[in-house]
């Protein structure tokens, strides 16, 4: 079986579900003949036609608003925001309608849609192409937020997102779209949307991360092993709802936790995880919970972006601090 990158695994998942579910359609800008600017929908229009893989006018609010309407009338639209920087024109429909539809109609209508988007920095992109604002969506009731970090998890999580009966924001870490190729079987098997993945078992410190930062986090764990520190690495993956049980269980074992996120720090998902640890895991902690995050600044243009994003070195320096106190 040939190895595939995350972006190809996503394409496989969409193709698999387009084959299995006649109610599923893809909509977005340049997703048809062009296959998406990152080629995530490459060749899908050729296979399924332009009534299943639908190029849209250049109007993000329209794409999301129509998806809400289509989902409420029984279809399963999977829409793409070309970059996360352009998703803000869709936010009104996500928070005001998608996340509320089932609740406010007492289940009469629902909104089984997926909003996909590439996000995050590190690819030398122009302005507005590099932010990570998953916390914004995670704060919205009624919406699931999912971020894969490997080809196989991308495949299984996207399938689950498409089949989920409620709206899912599916954020794709574009910096690792083509990193870490794996063999991914196109077997239609989904992954659960409510559990974290333990990527590496360890006993001394729990490193919690998601998205593209998993790459640096795993590298940091390798470096720590060289120093005799055994790090457990958890990929949160399902940002909302959040599986704190897996994280707390790990911290019960290690007593130390460092959370790594490329998003800005203030009110971020890392803060929510830290607050939950303070609430439910504090007696197991041997050291304060530390965060390694982006800064609370505007994401810089690309000459400085690698200084903004947490590096392996910043992770290691922070881990050093949680060992200094105990």
């Amino acid at each position: 079986m040939p190895k595939v990158a995350m972006v190809e695994a996503l394409s496989m998942a969409m193709g698999s579900e387009l084959r299995a579910d006649k109610d599923m359609v893809l909509m977005g800008e340049d997703i048809g003949i062009n296959g998406g600017v990152f080629r995530a929908t490459s060749s899908l229009q050729k296979e399924f036609g332009d009534l299943r893989v639908i190029d849209t006018p250049l109007a993000e609010t329209m794409i999301c608003g129509m998806a809400v309407g289509m989902a409420a009338q029984g279809m399963r639209p999977v829409i793409e925001a070309q970059f996360m920087g352009f998703v803000y024109a869709m936010v009104d429909h996500m928070i005001s309608h998608a996340g509320r539809m089932r609740h406010r109609t007492r289940g009469r209508l629902s909104c089984p849609m997926v909003l996909r988007m590439p996000f995050g920095g590190g690819i030398h992109a122009p302005e507005h192409h590099s932010e990570s604002t998953e916390a914004m969506f995670a704060h919205m009731p009624g919406i699931r937020v999912v971020i894969p970090s490997s080809p196989s998890r991308a495949y299984g999580l996207l399938l689950a997102a498409i089949r989920d009966p409620d709206p899912v924001v599916f954020m794709e870490p574009k910096r690792i779209y083509r990193w870490g190729k794996e063999e991914v079987e196109d077997d239609g098997e989904e992954l659960p949307l409510d559990v974290c993945f333990v990527l590496r078992e360890g006993t001394d410190v729990t490193l919690v991360s998601w998205g593209a930062m998993i790459k640096e986090t795993l590298e940091a764990a390798d470096k720590l092993a060289e120093q005799g520190i055994s790090a457990e690495v958890i990929d949160v993956a399902t940002i909302s709802p959040l599986d704190m049980d897996t994280i707390i269980e790990s911290v019960e074992k290690t007593g130390r936790c460092v959370i790594i996120a490329e998003a800005a720090r203030h009110c971020g998902v890392a803060a929510e995880i830290a607050a939950n640890l303070a609430d439910s895991g504090i007696y197991n902690l041997l050291a304060p919970v530390k965060r390694v995050t982006g800064y609370d600044t505007v994401m810089p243009l690309y000459r400085m972006e690698m200084k903004y994003l947490p590096s392996v070195e910043r992770i290691l320096n922070t881990v050093k601090k949680v060992f200094a106190v105990s």
Binding site: T61, G65, G69, H97, R104
Partner: peptide, 19 residues
Amino acid sequence: AWCVPIATQCLHAAGAAMV
């Protein structure tokens, strides 16, 4: 359902029409 955020219902109707 009743739609309070102004004009958003127009796109939901467009989505229904698309279906």
